[in-house]
């Protein structure tokens, strides 16, 4: 009986080991490419927010925690010949279909430079329109949902359906993304305050 158990256990172990070895090889072959893809996406988004920047410095450790359910991932300072242009904050928070990751760019004048959605898993055709570059909340001016945050002061109102235009039939997504943007911007403002770059 004992021998039988041992035999089954060994067979199972043999399959598990073989599977692990196979996976290890595939992981080793693809991990660099996966990391490069993620870096590339982040870099493109950072460049998109601060096209004039020459370098980005990781300042995640200096940031204050985000309000509400939003969680800070990383933060970068965009610089050009030594001068600080602004701050890019990558944060995630709960949305309708799972966590959404958002990159918020903020200038030293405390205005939002732009907002990029890096990951979102909401309903296609509804909440997913938050990341759709051809879905306009203001059709006449061709302003997208994330586009409407550009130029907004941190101290402005962030109430959906009053200060922020919502995506049709996706109030939850609209509120969630707005909450992440607001929390990130607040944290960014406090960094700018502490580093005395605010000017006026």
């Amino acid at each position: 009986m004992m021998k039988q158990y041992l035999r089954l256990g060994l067979i199972l172990a043999a399959f598990a080991v073989a599977a692990c070895v196979g996976l290890a090889f595939v992981y080793a072959a693809t991990s660099d490419q996966i990391a490069a893809n993620q870096d590339k996406q982040l870099n493109e988004s950072l460049k998109g927010l601060f096209p004039d920047a020459e370098g980005f410095k990781d300042v995640t450790a200096d940031m204050t925690a985000l309000a509400g359910e939003s969680k800070l991932e990383t933060a970068y300072v965009a610089t050009r010949s030594g001068a600080v242009l602004g701050l890019a904050i990558k944060a995630h928070g709960p949305s309708y279909g799972g966590p959404a990751t958002v990159l918020v760019g903020m200038g030293t004048d405390r205005r939002i430079v732009g907002v990029r959605i890096l990951a979102i898993s909401d309903t296609p055709g509804l909440g997913l329109n938050a990341a759709n570059p051809t879905y306009y909340v203001k059709k006449a001016e061709k302003i997208t949902f994330t586009g409407q945050f550009a130029g907004k002061l941190v101290t402005d109102g962030f109430v959906v359906k009053q200060d922020v235009d919502a995506i049709t039939a996706s109030t939850i997504t609209s509120r969630s993304i707005t909450a992440i943007v607001k929390a990130s911007a607040d944290s960014g403002e406090s960094w700018i305050e502490r580093n005395a770059l605010g000017g006026n």
Binding site: L12, F15, A19, V26, T30, I34
Partner: peptide
């Protein structure tokens, strides 16, 4: 054993798709 084999190949295709 079926699950181990299926899970291994699923993880492989997941990595490959993430990479390429």
């Amino acid at each position: 054993i079926f699950i181990i084999v299926i899970a291994a190949f699923t993880t492989i295709i997941d990595y490959v798709m993430q990479a390429y």
